[in-house]
Design a protein around this nucleic acid. Structure first.
Lengths: 200, 200, 200, 200
DNA sequence: CGCTAAACGAGACGGTACGTCGAGTCTTACT
DNA sequence: AGTAAGACTCGACGTACCGTCTCGTTTAGCG
């Protein structure tokens, strides 16, 4: 496995160009028109591939959407790494919100739509996008606890959802802004808690 | 308003039975099969109404989904009213999560799907469901601030989204539970904040 | 009948204006767009009458079409009355062809379409339009036989259909013209027969 | 043409079985219920084909009706070929009338209905059915003129319409019979003309 | 170098749902 | 009772995608 070249049977190998064209077309369609414009038929037409070819490699719309999304998004928005965990958290939160305000927001909401129908898509999104980012966030949290910036007992999962859930909710329902100021205020609100603090 | 008979023009009045049958069928379909099963054709068939009749009164699937949802849900889950604002908040949060775990969750996620395609549906959901509940929540927050249970300067909108956003996110992505314990912990986390507290 | 007022039961009498408006609208629609544009809905809209009112007085589209047609056409194209029966026949044939080239052709073909679906319409057309004209034609034929212009033994019905059938066929299939010259030639052809004539 | 294999582009070839099933269903429906029963929906259902497939190959009802009609009727009723042109004419006329009395009559009248709405159908009927038969009839006429059975100067088109027009008219309006006797008399009437003949 | 086998394009096919139109029936208020 | 208004059921329209299928063509590795 280590040295062996990928074992391959006979027959024509998969055409990488076609694959990329399909993923690219899928991404573009999602970005341009959201889930409504994202049609296998349209992907085929735009990519120049045959519908058959698409169905050969992706079992359904969700799988294709996810893969086209992940491929582009995977390298984006790495967690910053500064002296202050809290600062890093805020920076990252701002980054996510900025992406969600732009084209990535369209992609994410589309995939979440697809995920409501197709459990496989949901799982793929959670495993391929959400959880890796949460794992990275967890690191920051732990760093913050170690440094004393964050309190020790906090429940990471719920803290994370409180921060990100607000952003996801606003992405989907647009009842509130996703600007830097709003996100900073969100971070402060959750960091400080809702209860009054005794004067130090 | 009190004495005036509802002014009505000529023509056969709208058949209330049909309207209710349609709304009922729409609700049932959404509950049973989610957005995938929610088809105008299916609603027509199940309700016994003609497709034309449905299109006469609702411009699209979203409008029908929303109305059927609101009609059923409107009387549910009134905000509790106890001595403690915080306790009320927690109770209400638990209630929402409980609903989301059940059939209402199916409805809400379906409508949010529809809302991603149709802005009118999004607006209807926000105005007809979300905002009224937020307004009620705001009252509780204000009560809490007045009583000293909550700190004075907090941003209500973001606090609210931190609490509810986590629940919505979990409804849609199912990466975390919505049980009473989880929700209680969420409330505690957001109430107490993430920063360490100086010992009193 | 002369002095007596039309005996009438209780209730509001039929509104003659409405009836005329309906017939007029029906006629206009038929003339403008043929059978495709002739819709009860359209008649109602254009005439300002309610669909119910139309259905009260006419059992179906065909009946309305026929009546609106007959009312207008009834007074047209009376058989000429000259010294020569053959000349009268030719004149009349020209007249029919001229009408068929124009708006009446649209009406007649539309009604014949309707007649293929609704036997009542067929009967109404035959009894109300075709047969009266054939009866008038028969008079001419008989005059011609009496005067020696036409031969004695001829079968009136078939002679008539040979003359008019060609015109109806061309109205419907448009494979040949309906100009005066063509019609004259038709008359001559049928009058003279296809067999060679011994020189007088 | 003789040796060349039918050139064919890429893609799955058209399924001949489906095509035939559709044409057959169309024919049967027309025959059974006339134009009223002839619905794309019904054709699809009866043939087992999808509506889409029908629309892929035929632009509208008329085109399908025509093709299903021609395919069946094309091989019927070839012009007879005896010593006497007049006898052949009569035989053929009888044949047409016999067909029109039966199922073909239903088909023809249905197509003529469709033709009143759709010019393409009219043209297809005239070119695909009427004109070929007229061309064959012309041959007979010419033979008759050559043999002296028919007079030399006659206008073929109008003579033809006089003979066939009567039959078409009776098909559509049913105001007269189409039995053998009637048709024979029709032929005699047109052959002999309406004017008295000088004794030979 | 030819054989085998998979990838690929093209596009036909059976379906499901869409949103619209018109037919014909009905229920109501007004005259 | 006649009429306008308009709600209602029903059936068909023509369209868009779905996911599957059957072709002919291409592109590799293996014998």
């Amino acid at each position: 496995m280590s040295t062996a070249v990928e074992a391959r049977g006979p027959g024509r190998p998969r055409c990488e160009g076609t694959k990329q064209a399909i993923l690219r077309a899928a991404y573009d369609l999602l970005e341009e028109g959201g889930i409504a414009a994202f049609t296998i038929e349209a992907v085929a037409q735009r990519s120049g591939a045959a519908k058959t070819t698409i169905y050969r490699w992706w079992p359904n719309k969700g799988a294709l959407a996810i893969e086209s999304f992940l491929q582009v998004v995977e390298k984006q928005n790495p967690f910053p790494q500064s002296a202050s965990a809290i600062a890093d958290l805020k920076t990252q939160l701002r980054g996510v919100a900025r992406l969600f305000r732009g084209r990535v927001g369209q992609l994410v909401s589309s995939i979440m739509v697809e995920a409501q129908t197709d459990p496989e898509t949901r799982r793929a999104f959670v495993d391929g996008y959400l959880n890796p980012r949460r794992a990275a966030a967890r690191k920051v949290f732990e760093r913050g606890i170690a440094s004393g910036e964050l309190r020790a007992g906090l429940d990471f999962d719920l803290a994370c959802d409180a921060l990100y859930g607000a952003i996801y909710m606003r992405l989907l329902l647009r009842h509130g802004g996703l600007g830097d100021a709003a996100v900073d205020l969100l971070a402060e609100t959750v960091l400080d808690g809702l209860r009054p603090r005794p004067a130090p």
